[in-house]
Amino acid sequence: MLEISGISKTFNPGTVNARLALDRVSLSVREGDFITIIGANGAGKSTLLNAISGDFITDEGKIVLDGDDVTLAPPHMRARRIGRLYQDPMRGTAPGMSIEENLTLAAGYGGWLSHITAADRKRFREKLALLDMGLEDRMSQPVGLLSGGQRQALTLMMATINPPKLLLLDEHTAALDPGAADKVLSLTESIVREQRLTCLMVTHNMQSALDLGNRTIMMNQGRIIFDEEGSARAGLTVGDLLDRFRQDAGKNLDNDRMLLSEEQGGGRHAHA
């Protein structure tokens, strides 16, 4: 489904700020995998998702998506098969345009010169009703009037209105208030399940990293240091993850470890 082999990326090469953000990362994602990705700040989680969606071209390595080599493809070409949500709920929607206009662009029905049809509106209404946020009655209102949670739910709808081959979620609930975060997360789960989507989700919340999906990977310093699934993953606790992190990441990473523990505490709080 998604084959990543040996991709690396150095930001600001040749300067004092040079940083190896991805260090020969390889990852094989099977159809239907729901992978949660954890790691400290700066571990390369978001960078990995950015590399997959084409925000930058990797320095080396290869990315094969659904049988096609997309290593050098520009982001808008990859977007045909990749749906994506960012942490910032403002990033996925055009605030000055109405809900139905946003959905039309995401859906891409019809040719360049086609208008929104009654059939499109009906389809959008049905889809929006599933969100249970009353958005189906506000389709001609500008998206800028919606709350962060509503915008993120709408972005989720837009990203999956044509079921993507791959859904990338980059801490998409982290900027929302706890209630909205829970709502968006449960919507995500049900959409991923119903459409049987292949999904990569970055999270800071270690508990939900273990609760959600079928596979968990941990990153550190641009590398994948841990990749568990199935029965080996089933018995894991947050404590085990922290132990694994300590053991794999080596000894000079006290700061990163503290970050991880802290974020986990924060995550729990948000979850409660």
Partner: peptide
Amino acid sequence: LRTRLGLAIRATGNNPDMVRSSSINP
């Protein structure tokens, strides 16, 4: 400006990221 191309032009001024996510080249 109500066609798909027109909407894409308006969205480019609004949020180019969203245009790219919609598989359209800004």
